[in-house]
Nucleic acid binder design. Sequence first.
DNA 1: CACGGCACGC
DNA 2: GACGTACGTGCCGTGT
Length: 880
Amino acid sequence: MAKTNKLVLIDGNSIAYRAFFALPLLNNDKGIYTNAVYGFTQMLLKILEDEKPTHILVAFDAGKTTFRHKTFGEYKGGRQKTPPELSEQFPFIRQLLDAFKIKRYELENYEADDIIGTLASYAADGNWDVKVFTGDKDLLQLVTPDVEVVLTRKGITEVEAYTVEQVNERYGITPHQIIDMKGLMGDPSDNIPGVPGVGEKTAIKLIKQYGTIEKVLDSIDEISGAKLKERLTENKEQAIMSKELATITKEAPIEVSLEETNYDGYETSSIFPLFKELGFNSLLERLGGDEEILQDEEKEELNFKTVTKIEADMLTSPSSIIVETLTEDYHKAKIHGFAVSNDAGTFYIPSSVADQSEEFHEWLQDQNQKKRMFDAKRAHVALHGQGIVLNGIDFDIQLASYLLNPSESLDEVADVARQYGKSNVDVNEAVYGKGAKKKLPEDEAVLAEHLCRKAHTVFQLSDLLDEKLKENEQSDLFYQLEMPLALVLAKMEEFGVKVKSDTLQKMGADLDIQLTALEKDIHDLAGVSFNINSPKQLGEILFEKLNLPPVKKTKTGYSTSVDVLEKLEGKHEIINKILIYRQLGKLRSTYIEGLLKVVKEDTGKIHTRFNQVLAQTGRLSSIDPNLQNIPIRLEAGRKIRHAFVASQPGWKILAADYSQIELRVLAHISQDENLIEAFKTEMDVHTKTAMDVFHVEESEVTSEMRRHAKAVNFGIVYGISDYGLSQSLGITRKEAGEFISSYLDSFPGVQQYMKDSVSEAKHNGFVSTLLHRRRYLPEINSRNFNLRSFAERTAMNTPIQGTAADIIKKAMVDMDQRLTDEKLEAKMLLTVHDELIFEVPENELQKLEEIVCEVMESAVELDVPLKVDVNWGDSWFEAK
DNA sequence: CACGGCACGC
DNA sequence: GACGTACGTGCCGTGT
């Protein structure tokens, strides 16, 4: 029988606490902390959406003392004071609930638990479904067939619902026995004493056996263990009292009836103003806040002119220039219009006008006409597609903004504008729509204004951001490195890389055959046909049909990842075949089919896009296709590289990669003598690490020791945790932790660097690289262990990875210059983090090899040498 | 169309 | 003592 009423009871204090600690200390534009309110709101919206309650109430604790203090004066004693950053948010949470028209209630002398317990008991007449939301496990005692308790798990909106069965499954006892368990084990957070020496395990064992505390105490004689017996005897009364303290009352004298919790939903009109005040723009949008509300401030009037004929005085220097493209992939993007802004005014130049104007094209190509832009690389490539070379790029506010703070989103002009307090430009989505419905506005005047607003904003922000770069001592990084690099990347993207489609197709056909055979074998072994690519179906086959032991679970079911399957190898023939199927399937879908899809038909080339403003460490990323994850580790995958060749007959592919660049950087910035020595004497760094970590001579280093040492080095470079290291080596977390401390003992300079880097982050709020790249780490002071630890590892790792990124970027800019200076025909094609790939005519091979080594090795001067390995051949495969 | 699971590189 | 643990991109399957 479906029940008529659905009652949701929320433990307000608990959820607020939870939200506060789960989120970084956000504040709105007026400096009011809002993270708890924000998290609370998210939770509330989710509950309303998921549960659709007919009745709802949020209970709060009232005052400092409760009836429990009469029983035990020190109840909740020693508890840390609520941080003021949280306290000040409670009034907003109350306002929020009022805006949502949700009943809230608190009662002198009682805790939120008691209000919830009492109301839940009111609703026990069989007509009610009750759900209690809290972060406090104590409330599990309220679970009955009618009452579910939903505990927050991690983050804000991830929760776990407990029914009677689930309580039993988790603790092995019934919900009302929770209080007996608590009575025995106590609760340090509430200062409930319990019985000293009895923890969760013992408590559960005893309660399972005897049922209640009282029965346990009656049967002390038969309990085994002299010490336990003694403790129980001595603390009888304390145990009974603890149980009393832990018991939630169902008879609090509340003055609220079930009827009063009736809920008819909310009206956005009362919620939007509050969201606006708090700065909850994403939530506003989620609730369908319309544009007027989203853009609360009237955009200031902008004077601009739509140009029908280009006049000389419109194109002065400096100017900002918008080259508008709508398609994400700018290689094939159409240009829908231009806008220019400068001291003379702001002008919309329709494509039709621009196309006809020789003068405009000349201006675009004029090196001396300084241009301020947003994402100049996109414009450069798009114009290149029209046969126009864009010159004179002077300032890119997207790049500048990335250097000032790489963690901000920077997809469009409006993002940067918002960050620097300008709200005079619309987001693209508001003008063009999104997804399948994305299109130019019907009215060209709308487009004109949008582009002009962008142009105007870019022009204004350039000066401001230039100033900020100076303050941060990032002007060199910007003007000498990232700006020129953008142009180098544009040229690489435009030039593209030749890929032999027929080679890929042949490999694809081979894979098809192997995959078909594997699929048949797997289905035969399973005894049933199913989709091997579906983790869900595969999980059911392996762990239910074939009864293999499930090693790990994911949120949605059994995990079937490689490490799980590897543990099952040998238990069933099917496993190995699945592993091979996965490996080959990945090759086929991502690398064969994926690459074939993006080969340009007429030229046989692929044109990736490098994202220069995304990675938090300063690295580049690559999309469409991603050329930075082409297989190399396993032979079958490495063969893909056969398809990457030079674009002209007789030319070669040359690859130059930095050897151990991150560890060399670490040696330099940490000034660890041991590590510096290792590189100065050209030792194998992993072997050296193994010698020091395991305290053995070079000749005694086994391959296993070297493998472990290599993983530790890997961990240092990538900032992984003891957990991460344990996963990659298949050892326990404790062992991994020991490796790490042993490593740090052997390299005291590194240890000191790690400490310094964290305190630098705490002190400045950011860490930086050799060339002054920054990464802010606001969570370094978080009280949330997780967030803080992550920030600490990031503080140690980012200067290493980021400096390595600085170096290779510098090498690219220098290399581009050298190729021009030396009048070489060779082309730089790609970069893969620590590697540069070129195509080169045979007669330039020797010269290029020389130059590449020289340029890369001297990109910056470190206290250890930089070493570069160069290889070449007919394809990327041979250049190894 | 968004999300989760998985896998590739550095 | 929990928490959920390098950064990216892209594929597939699943559920809305």
